[in-house]
């Protein structure tokens, strides 16, 4: 059950909600991300991304189709296979870009 306050918090940060939610990004299945609970360890921790990507567009490309950069990747092609929508990807990028 969601408490009203957590619902408001999530609405304030839709990118975070999509990133954490099991039936959306479910990025936590593989990545450690700030306060996310029981993360997997298949991919690297997601933080300080501006130091790893030149710009948001590059980060977006990785999420849209990781197989472009590594054909053997275990990361699903979220945009290419329409696992989440284009708008949702933008929201995820905005959220992740700000994590220290």
């Amino acid at each position: 059950m969601q408490t009203p306050t957590s619902a408001i918090k999530q609405a304030e940060n839709p990118g975070k909600q999509i990133t954490f939610s099991r039936d959306k990004g479910n990025c936590l299945a593989c990545h450690e991300i700030e306060d996310g609970e029981s993360p997997g360890n298949i991919g690297p921790a997601l933080k300080n991304l501006p130091s790893r990507f030149n710009n948001k567009k590059q980060l977006r490309d990785q999420i849209w189709d990781a197989t472009r950069f590594n054909p053997e990747t275990s990361m699903p092609p979220f945009g290419k296979n329409k696992i989440i929508s284009e708008i949702e990807i933008d929201q995820v990028v905005d959220y992740l870009w700000g994590i220290k």
Partner: peptide, 21 residues
């Protein structure tokens, strides 16, 4: 849709954690 093979999980990532599994 997730574009996985059986080996993605049980060979390539065997021993690693998918969420808490």
């Amino acid at each position: 849709q997730l574009n996985f093979s059986c080996t993605t999980c049980h060979v390539q990532n065997a021993g690693k954690k998918l969420r808490s599994e």
